[in-house]
Design a protein around this nucleic acid. Structure first.
Lengths: 182, 182
DNA sequence: CCTCATTGTGCAACTTGTTGCATAATGAGG
DNA sequence: CCTCATTATGCAACAAGTTGCACAATGAGG
């Protein structure tokens, strides 16, 4: 039950159409919870039917016509309720860990080593991107609670990518030269 | 397409029945990729139909009767093929990050702070558990490739929990005393 | 031997996420 | 004005994961 709340959050920050939301997910929110445009449109429909958001009125009908949504009071309340809720930590569910574990059984091939290096670079790139965000944010203020919270979330992203880069370095190192002493 | 391969890996390590697999998922593999018994039984059925595993022959029929599965040659090949494959890193998809981001918009309540502390303790407990595994493994050998690979996977789990504990400490610290200096 | 908790397997229905395609409006270029 | 790429919304079908329940065997205790 996270996607609708992710959408409510995004719409509270700025009312948007489905496609705008999709693009914003590709940039910011989607780094933590990605979604395709299909999921987003479907969820927008549900949220509207549930009376949590509404489409800003336009003249012409719908198809192929931009439709902007804004969050209603009940939507904001629902989000507040959700924020105060709980759930259990999820397993990381990254296939790479599983793949490595499987490689322990059927043998590590060159393909896997290459894949680890590739992921290392992807995570390093993501890390650089986040640090750029952080640099930009530092220029602007940190006054409001909102700024500080978003800074923490971003820090979480950075720390997580740091984990990946560092662990992948260990893993690559540990696998590259199996029986050799340096 | 990860669950079938997780199952193949587990069955290669040790042929098992559905329930045994479920229990093993609750302990080791499931830390990275959890699955309910339903998913496992369904997947075992598919894998058997696909000719990648087979049920070890028994006398009596099936219902409520333990059925052990073992991996066939084609199953092992499939797993080897998969290990050499690729996929893209997934987003972390942890609701807690989303929740915090939403809190940036609708305001951080006491409930959330408590939730962060709770998660911190859960991750710390998991970390302790992993370190216990590591201590036990260190007692046994590290000779084979398999041992070294499993050590790396475990190290990944440890580093990941370390990330959570450290970041949650930062987050709790950053939210607990909003406007106060020290 | 009968009941009942436990072990073990499984179906059905639902939710969430993915993939491929269809369709409508709009504006730029020939 | 006609075509065509782009923007924008959406349906349908599928795959993956979750939840709730049903049912069969087994062995222990009354």
């Amino acid at each position: 039950m996270s996607l609708p709340h992710a959408i409510l959050t995004a719409l509270l920050e700025k009312p948007s159409s489905g496609l705008e939301l999709t693009r914003r997910f590709d940039r910011s929110i989607g780094y933590f919870w990605s979604a395709t445009h299909q999921q987003i449109y479907r969820e927008l429909g549900k949220l509207e039917k549930a009376g949590l958001i509404r489409a800003l009125p336009t003249d012409s009908p719908t198809r192929g016509q931009k439709k902007e949504y804004e969050v209603l009071a009940s939507g904001r309340e629902e989000l507040e309720r959700w924020v105060a809720g709980q759930d259990e930590p999820r397993d990381p569910r990254d296939p790479l860990l599983l793949r490595l574990r499987a490689a322990g059984v059927v043998g590590v091939g060159d393909g896997l080593l290459e894949e680890l290096r590739r992921h290392r670079e992807l995570h390093a790139a993501r890390l650089a991107e986040y640090r750029e965000f952080q640099r930009r944010d530092a220029a602007r203020g940190h006054g409001t609670e909102r700024d500080r919270v978003q800074g923490l979330v971003l820090q979480g992203g950075i720390d997580l990518e740091l984990f990946w880069v560092n662990w992948l370095d260990k893993a690559i190192d540990g696998l590259a030269v199996p029986g050799t002493a340096s």
